[in-house]
Simulated assay, not measured.
Amino acid sequence: MSSISDIIERYLKKILNESKNGIVEIKRSELAEIFQCVPSQINYVISTRFTVEKGYIVESKRGGGGFIRIQKVRYKNRHDIFEKMLANIGDATTQLTAEHVLAWLFEEELITEREALLMKRLISRETLQLPIPLRDPMRARMMRILITTLFSCKGE
């Protein structure tokens, strides 16, 4: 059974995919009313499931006429995607950020579900049993190698 967060995420992705320009503007309170939840639930979904690492830009304006604008990032070519992924990973990366990158690569059909699962297990805390000051840089190095290999093996 899907959680309310999953349902809200699917709804937002559906309307994003249906929009001609890849942008959707919503009012937090209206969306909360549609799904019979508190506005903070909408905030949670947007802040955790529509991140830069997952390929979204989110703008928020608070107040009476406030809105949330979600934009799906569109890249010109594979090289732009490659550069953005490496920038998101940086010199040290948390497990959550790395998982968001993998989720985005899967959603964009740049990797298979199996590849995503293998990469996710490889960069997990359970696999990288190191102190945090060593673990996050090691995870970033592994992600950069995985991304570089992925983009050098799958043609333009």
Rank of each mutant, 00 (worst) to 15 (best):
M1T: 04
S2R: 04
S2G: 00
S2P: 04
I4V: 06
I4C: 01
I4R: 05
I4S: 05
S5G: 04
E9I: 00
R10F: 02
R10M: 00
Y11M: 03
Y11F: 14
Y11D: 05
L12P: 01
K13E: 05
K13A: 02
K13L: 14
K13C: 05
K14N: 11
N17E: 11
S19V: 15
K20V: 13
K20H: 12
K20D: 13
N21C: 08
N21A: 14
G22S: 11
I23P: 04
I23H: 08
E25S: 08
R28G: 05
R28P: 10
R28H: 07
R28C: 07
S29A: 15
S29K: 15
L31M: 14
L31D: 07
I34R: 13
I34P: 02
I34C: 01
F35S: 04
Q36T: 10
P39W: 10
P39K: 10
S40W: 15
S40I: 14
Q41C: 13
I42S: 04
V45C: 12
V45D: 10
V45I: 08
I46L: 15
S47E: 11
S47T: 12
T48M: 09
T48W: 00
T48F: 07
R49D: 06
R49W: 05
R49H: 12
F50W: 12
Y56E: 15
Y56K: 14
I57S: 08
I57F: 10
E59D: 15
S60P: 06
S60K: 13
S60N: 12
K61T: 14
K61G: 07
R62S: 08
G63R: 08
G66A: 14
F67Q: 07
I68G: 15
R69G: 13
I70R: 10
I70V: 11
Q71Y: 13
Q71R: 12
Y75T: 05
K76I: 09
N77Y: 01
R78D: 03
R78Q: 04
H79V: 09
F82G: 00
E83T: 09
A87D: 06
G90P: 01
G90C: 00
G90V: 00
A92K: 02
Q95S: 08
Q95W: 06
Q95T: 10
Q95E: 15
L96I: 09
A98Q: 08
E99P: 05
L102A: 02
W104N: 00
W104Q: 01
F106Y: 04
E109L: 05
L110R: 11
L110A: 03
I111R: 01
T112I: 08
T112W: 03
R114W: 00
R114S: 11
R114H: 06
E115D: 15
E115L: 15
L117G: 05
M119R: 11
K120H: 09
R121W: 07
L122P: 01
R125F: 03
R125V: 04
R125L: 04
R125C: 00
R125Q: 03
E126M: 15
T127A: 12
T127F: 14
Q129R: 08
P131L: 01
I132R: 00
P133G: 03
P133W: 00
R135P: 08
R135A: 13
R135G: 02
M138L: 09
R139L: 04
R139D: 05
A140E: 06
M142Q: 02
M143L: 14
R144P: 02
R144F: 01
I145G: 08
I145P: 00
L146G: 03
T148M: 12
T148K: 13
L150R: 05
S152H: 13
C153W: 09
C153M: 12
G155I: 07
E156W: 14
E156P: 15
